[in-house]
């Protein structure tokens, strides 16, 4: 059984009007019916452009935002039905690493008290035992034991992210949701942090849900990758599979934007440019949500009928009516979208 199972998850944020008599005039459908499974000890990478709902999905999994519908099952327990206190206790086992390491650390707490707080909160350890654990954790993430008395602003970005990771590890969690764990860091530091995450996964048998927009980072650490567009999962496949054979037009366009480190291949690389902005999640397009920007768009069906996520190859699912025809080369992208 998977450690984490998400079924039909929806997170809608109501749009309210009126000052005294508030009424709901609509909803931002940040996440609109997503299924995903994360196997124990593996990494699930979630990619998509800003505003596609991947951060909201990550937070909903930890119930930091309340899901509107759907179920989240963590190690056999239905998380969405737990009371606030039961949820609080379960949080030991599911932790989060944030995008901006500085803003996710309380500026008034020194490192030691940042690391001791979760231990005290859950009654795991207090006093000297907790401080000992804090020093151990600093060592695990590669920070000097003397950092304990320092404050977050005294560290570099990479070091701060190490503190954030150490904090997520304090309670020996099973699952870590990492929301853009390296995108705020310098490229040279990104590799260090990604390697650290991988080492920790091996050492502690962690399960990761990594949210990112950087395809290279996600590919490097994930076993499975899910691609989100406007609150929906559009394609899901094992990492190498997805990179070798992207099937959804959106994934194809994303992949075509990644430079290839081989000058001859790179010269021949054809880029597919997506035009226009992400449509509003408060008012998503009819039919296939991607049809307004899709270079492979076909008349009427894309506009009228919403594609379901279907299995086209073992472990490879796509939500596109024309995936097979596009793969076979029968449907070509609109020439205006192709740039070489």
């Amino acid at each position: 059984m998977s450690l984490l199972e998400v079924r039909g998850l929806k997170v809608h944020f109501p749009i309210r009007r009126g000052i005294i008599l508030e009424r709901q005039v609509g909803a931002v459908r940040a996440v609109d019916g997503v299924d995903l499974d994360v196997e124990r000890g593996t990494t699930f990478g979630l990619v998509g452009e800003s505003g596609c709902g991947k951060t909201t999905l990550g937070r909903a999994v930890l119930r930091l935002v309340e899901p509107t519908a759907g179920s989240i099952t963590f190690d056999g327990v239905d998380v969405s039905s737990l009371s606030a206190e039961e949820m609080r206790k379960l949080r030991r086992r599911m932790q989060m690493v944030f995008q901006d390491p500085l803003s996710s650390l309380d500026p008034r707490q020194d490192v030691e008290s940042i690391l001791v707080e979760p231990l005290r909160t859950h009654g795991v350890a207090t006093g000297a035992a907790a401080r000992k654990r804090a020093r151990e954790l600093l060592d695990v993430v590669g920070l000097p034991a003397s950092s304990g008395g320092r404050y977050p602003h005294e560290f570099s970005g990479g070091q701060r992210q190490r503190i954030g990771i150490a904090r997520a590890l304090t309670l020996n969690p099973d699952l870590i949701v990492a929301d853009e764990p390296v995108s705020a860091l310098d490229v040279s530091i990104q590799a260090q942090v990604v390697n650290l995450l991988e080492e920790l996964q091996k050492e502690f048998g962690l399960t990761y849900l990594v949210i990112a927009h950087d395809l290279a980072v996600v590919r490097h650490i994930s076993e499975t990758i899910g691609v989100m567009y406007l609150g929906r999962m559009v394609e899901q496949a094992p990492s190498d599979d997805l990179y070798a054979k992207p099937r959804h037009p959106y994934t194809i366009a994303l992949m075509s934007a990644v430079p290839i480190p081989d000058p001859e291949v790179e010269d021949r690389r054809e880029r597919i440019l997506l035009t226009g902005d992400l449509p509003s999640p408060a008012n998503p397009p009819s039919g296939c949500r991607f049809h307004t920007r899709c270079p492979f768009r076909q008349p009427t069906r894309c506009h009228d009928e919403e594609p379901v996520l279907r299995v086209i190859e073992p472990a490879h699912t796509v939500a596109c009516h024309w995936a097979e025809q596009i793969a076979a080369g029968e449907i070509k992208p609109a020439s205006s979208a192709v740039v070489s």
Binding site: L64, D100, D106, E117, P118
Partner: peptide, 11 residues
């Protein structure tokens, strides 16, 4: 974010 972090820690 740090309040969100504290919430996710179960504080």
């Amino acid at each position: 974010d740090y309040v969100l972090a504290a919430r996710s820690l179960g504080v």
